[in-house]
Amino acid sequence: MSQTIAVIDYGMGNLRSVSKAVEQVADTDDNVLVTDDPRLILSADRVVFPGQGAARDCMDAISEHHLNRAVLDAAHSKPFLGICMGLQVLMETSEENGGTGLLGLIPGKVRRFPADMEIESQRLKIPQMGWNRVQQTRPHPLWEGIPDGSRFYFVHSYYIDPREGDLVAGTTDYGIPFTSVIARDNLFAAQFHPEKSAAAGLRLLRNFINWN
């Protein structure tokens, strides 16, 4: 059966990559919509919530596009995939921009990587940019067919620190261990970019399209 997948467009980030990757794995009669229209987001069968850039800019853009309600409703009611800032803004607050209030759907904070992390006497660069391993901390339909410890593409200087450990679905190590994936009911959100993570990323998107 054909379905509609909405990619939320609030002017933050490279939505072409996201929508092209979703189209690549969707069925031919599926409809991939890039939209900022709350009605279309609420009527879609699935919602992808991407995002790039600074926390405050993202929050401002979400407000300007009148999307707060639609994002929260979708995150409660249908298969919902957060990507990168689309994960971070689900938390309560971020240390970025001198402290930024976020959507508050998931209890916990967004923190900056410490400036002085070292591994084998080499300083770790910030942002973390590149392919890192994700340890699957529990089974989930979106992990199907993806070997535990697979590498995904990350670009970020901040990481989430959720208060409830049972939401964690994946962890990654970059000087410190951090939560790279959370999942709760119909919601799955990842710090990495599945749309830029070659075969593993496309498999995850495919799993999302099939997730019920």
């Binding site: 770790l124 973390q128 590149g130 392919w131 590498r151 190590d173």
Partner: peptide
């Protein structure tokens, strides 16, 4: 850990 990248 983060992998070193090879970029053509």
């Amino acid at each position: 850990m983060l992998a070193k990248r090879i970029i053509p």
